[in-house]
Write a protein that binds this DNA or RNA. Structure first.
Lengths: 178, 178
DNA sequence: TAGCTCATGTAACTAGTTACATGATTTG
DNA sequence: CAAATCATGTAACTAGTTACATGAGCTA
């Protein structure tokens, strides 16, 4: 799970309420991750119980009170730990959160994780290309169900290619920035 | 939900047991969809209760009995209905299932759905490109957190581009096959 | 004889969605 | 005056994962 960590990244940049976080997720992070307010409230409570974040009840004139959450030492430590931790089963969106939060931990460790995932996607891509060559040597002759099977494989190939190219771009940028 | 429908597609091509379906999902469809045997067994029971599929208990020598599931009339009707039904919130993997099963229903209806999704992804891509131009007019000067934000946006752009190009390829192939 | 494959299942969990509820203020 | 925004929450659901269980036969 990494909604916790996505929230840690967002709250590290700026403290805020559950409502505000919901808005932020609709925009920047929500490019990768959609989270409803119910889910965010639930996770915030869990994070508070774990001692990662602290709450400040803020009274407002005309508006309902809000609970402003701030990342504490334990939260910062957890984020640093998670950013550096290798996770072979991480999805693209989790990787996106790590990239987004790299400056809050060790950017070199994040780059290493990105490298591992680039390699894994490259290997998956090779496997798909092999299947393509073996099962569909001449796509122009395909029709009906075999054509449809081929098209689904093409989607898989494009997805892996996209991942590899993106992660390559990320690595180059990290390298030039280091 | 569409695990039901992914199973309907797979069982329409060939009847089989939950165990066999699990194996199939690890390969062809599992390119897009990973499902554990527990989940598949649970859904198969639900589909049987709904009357979409029928079971045949098959005794085997040396091996445990297996339950071979076959798609019935109600299942075929449901699959046809689902294949033609527009679903704006469908994910790429659900679309992949529809493309894979197009021949089991009305391929023209599936093509129409693919067109709608291509347009939606193209619109999303435009929105991201606008953000890119507005917020990061000169990427070469970026560093640290703003660079990381840019890279995450780049991932979103590449993902949408990949979807648009794939669905374009699908439409061309459908067109030539019709 | 240890581990893999075939084959099905229960139970408990995490993640995420949908519906419902409240109530003040601001905007059209 | 109706609708949107701000702000938090409960409850019930669907989807998916992890752990555990059984037991026969086949392979190294």
């Amino acid at each position: 799970m990494a909604l916790e960590h996505a929230i840690l990244v967002s709250l590290s940049e700026r403290s805020g309420s559950g409502y505000e976080l919901t808005r932020r997720f609709e925009k920047s992070i929500g490019l990768w991750w959609s989270a409803t307010h119910q889910q965010i409230y639930r996770v915030l409570k869990r994070m508070e119980d774990a001692g990662w974040i602290t709450v400040d009840q803020v009274a407002q004139s005309g508006k309902p009170d809000k609970k402003v959450y701030t990342v504490g030492d334990a939260g910062r430590a957890e984020l640093t730990r998670w950013l550096a931790e290798p996770d072979p089963s991480a999805t693209a969106r989790e990787l996106a959160v790590k990239i987004r939060g790299a400056a809050l931990g060790d950017p070199a460790a994040v780059a290493a994780e990105v490298t591992r995932h680039r390699d894994a996607h490259a290997a998956q891509l090779d496997a798909y290309l092999l299947i393509e060559k073996r099962d569909f040597p001449d796509p122009s002759v395909l029709s009906g169900q075999s054509l449809h099977q081929f098209l689904v494989l093409r989607g898989g190939i494009r997805t892996e290619q996209g991942h590899v190219e993106w992660l390559e771009e990320v690595l180059q940028a990290f390298h030039h920035d280091a």
